[in-house]
């Protein structure tokens, strides 16, 4: 293992407490900016609410943070490591401390639920098969889905898929988790269950970014807010600041008022 990848695997919270930092992240698609110089900071143990209308670039931004998409300009730091400069092997090592819940579940449809959840542990290569099996059973129990290891993803309902996807993201106990629309398309009861899981994760000290349209659901959870539209930052600040923000669009979006 090279010196760089050793640095990547070594987990240490930066001294200023900022675990995720984006500086001037831009991405262009045929000369139009889909992300235009976005800055953000997420401190250790806090949750950032990433909000905005559809196709604003929210999903793209979190993919850039995970190193799944390379930005055209700007830098992303996770625990002070510049994600945009890492090679693929180092990125793989860095992702061991990241978890992501995808918008459309992204469960591997050729694997059953148990294998889906076990894959991150297998790739980590530290646990034995027995302990992996126990861990999978344990986390499924935690989300109230015991004993569904042998089911295939297509047999599950939307809410179950979301929970399995959630479990797969957190099974390695990553310190940083990104939720891309964790309650999209779910009924209110299931949404409430998911929000309870998010709040449990936060109570355990995870740092996270949540994309959601369900403002009422995430309002009590998030400490910081970033509102983007067409790739441009319209608001960035904490909850009390967004409450008092006088910009008409932000007010309208935040309070859900019609135009």
């Amino acid at each position: 293992m090279s010196a760089a990848s050793k640095q990547v695997t070594h987990v240490e919270v930066p001294r200023d407490g900022v675990r995720i930092r984006c500086q001037g992240v831009s991405k262009y698609y045929r000369r139009t900016a889909v992300l235009d110089a976005v800055d953000l900071e997420v401190r250790d143990g806090t949750m950032l609410g990433l909000i905005g209308p559809g196709a604003a670039g929210k999903s793209l931004l979190v993919k850039i943070i995970c190193g799944l998409v390379a930005p055209d300009e700007g830098h992303v730091f996770i625990d002070d490591i510049d994600v945009t400069r890492l090679r693929e092997r180092e990125l793989q090592a860095l992702r061991m401390r990241l978890g992501m819940v995808f918008q459309n579940y992204a469960l591997f449809d050729f694997m059953n639920v148990g294998e889906n959840i076990a894959l991150p542990l297998r790739m980590e290569g530290r646990s034995s098969e027995t302990s992996i099996r126990n861990r999978v059973a344990e986390v499924l129990e935690q989300v109230a889905l015991p004993g569904i290891q042998d089911k295939m993803p297509r047999e599950l309902s939307g809410g179950m898929k979301k929970r399995v996807s959630f479990v797969r993201a957190v099974v390695r106990r990553p310190p940083i988790v990104i939720y891309d629309d964790p309650t999209g398309g779910l009924d209110p009861v299931t949404s409430a269950k998911i929000f309870r899981l998010l709040s449990d994760m936060k109570a355990q000290g995870t740092t996270s970014i949540t994309i959601s349209h369900d403002l009422d659901g995430i309002r009590p959870l998030c400490d910081q807010w970033l509102l983007i539209e067409h790739g441009k930052t319209l608001f960035s600040g904490d909850t009390s600041a967004i409450d008092q923000c006088e910009t008409p669009y932000v007010r309208q979006f935040w309070r859900g008022e019609p135009a």
């Binding site: 993919k63 995970c66 799944l68 693929e88 990125l91 793989q92 090592a93 992702r95 061991m96 990241l98 978890g99 992501m100 995808f102 918008q103 459309n104 992204a106 469960l107 591997f108 449809d109 894959l119 991150p120 790739m123 980590e124 797969r168 993201a169």
Partner: peptide, 17 residues
């Protein structure tokens, strides 16, 4: 289909290339 349903992204997040 794995790419467009984000399964490839999920694979990368799991630490597999």
């Amino acid at each position: 289909s794995m790419v467009v349903t984000e399964q490839v992204d999920a694979l990368q997040m799991s630490g597999a290339h």
